[in-house]
Amino acid sequence: MDLTPSGALRRGICALTVAATVPYLTLKSLWLCGSTVGFAPGAEIADSGALWAGNLVTFVMDAVAVLLALALIRPWGRRIPSGLLLFPAWVGSGMLGALLLELPLVFGTELLFGTEPSIDAQSWLRPWVFAVVYGGFAVQGLTLLAGFGLHARERWAGLLADRIGDLPRTATLGLQRVLAVTAAGLAVPLAATRLYWALGGDLARPLRLTEGHRPARIIDAVTAALLLAACGAFLHVVLRRTPERPLAPALVTGWVAGGAVFAWGSWTVFAWLLTPEVPEQADVVPPAGQLAEAAQAGVGLLLLVLGALILIERAHAAADVQSAG
């Protein structure tokens, strides 16, 4: 099978990714132009600048997915500096990877237990909108992860073949360990809080999410698992307790789970900043809940810095070996 950048497999992956973004980008374009397509009958939507800005930001985010898909298959993509490619790929992998875990659980529980009455803040949308949007996200998640995996296997084959003990012991290793332990120290109580919410706890939750709302509780359970998986993977790498183990499993786990923690934590904080008006009483997040969401963004930021240090130090060590040889 041809796995080169011009190969049929990569072209197919890119085409599927682009095709999956078309419905979402079309819908967002219509909303940005003032259309009410997809709105439920009788829905009353305030003429909010925050809503328009949110639609613009999410349109740009999905447009970046198109550019990323092209970069992963075209020769010019390998000339893009690693950092410029890795950051959007990491955020996209985490955001869409979390959805790939959550969507089967949400739809599976609906098949088993039935659909809950609509109490969501977005009940003003027609049901087909969710099918189009999340169906597209699922396809994008699968294709972008596959495309990035092929790109990484070609561009960073040496890193993926390394053992944990092959990573360089540089002057920043102590800092890496401090960052990993700090992130884990924050992640454990955050994961416990998410599990408490997932099991039905309502303390520090918005009123809207205290009346059942099964999907939100599933998301909380998945987020708890991702927090623990991400920090566990990074601790495994920086503590070097099993240097003979292959690096790839921890790297992939830290990549997807850490990206999810960072992406969704940061998105929640960004959404708060984007909505300056006072929300409805049912949507008000208690201070403790706000602290938990902000702390998740903080954990994600620590993992971002830690991952960048690991990759930069490894790249410098590889360059030194090549120059010496």
Rank of each mutant, 00 (worst) to 15 (best):
E116M: 08
E116D: 08
P117H: 08
P117I: 10
P117C: 09
I119H: 06
I119D: 00
D120V: 08
D120C: 06
D120G: 02
A121K: 05
Q122N: 09
Q122V: 03
Q122H: 12
R126L: 12
P127N: 13
P127E: 15
W128K: 14
W128R: 02
V129I: 13
F130C: 09
A131W: 11
V132P: 05
V133C: 06
Y134F: 12
Y134T: 00
G135N: 06
G136Q: 09
G136D: 08
A138F: 04
V139N: 07
V139E: 06
V139M: 09
Q140D: 05
Q140I: 15
Q140C: 09
G141P: 05
L142P: 06
L142F: 15
T143N: 03
T143F: 07
T143W: 04
L144T: 05
L145K: 01
L145I: 15
L145H: 00
A146N: 10
A146R: 00
G147A: 11
G147S: 14
G149I: 14
L150T: 13
H151R: 02
H151S: 07
A152Y: 00
W156R: 01
G158F: 15
L159H: 13
L160E: 04
L160V: 14
L160T: 06
A161S: 15
A161K: 07
D162A: 14
D162C: 08
D162P: 02
D162F: 14
R163A: 07
R163H: 08
I164W: 07
I164R: 00
I164K: 00
G165L: 05
G165K: 06
P168A: 11
R169I: 13
R169E: 09
R169V: 06
R169K: 13
T170W: 01
T170P: 00
T170M: 01
T172W: 12
T172E: 03
T172H: 08
L173M: 12
L173K: 10
G174I: 02
G174L: 09
R177V: 08
V178K: 11
V178I: 15
V178E: 02
V178N: 01
L179A: 06
L179Y: 08
A180N: 02
A180F: 03
V181T: 08
V181I: 15
V181G: 05
T182V: 15
T182W: 06
A183C: 12
A184W: 05
A184Q: 02
A184N: 05
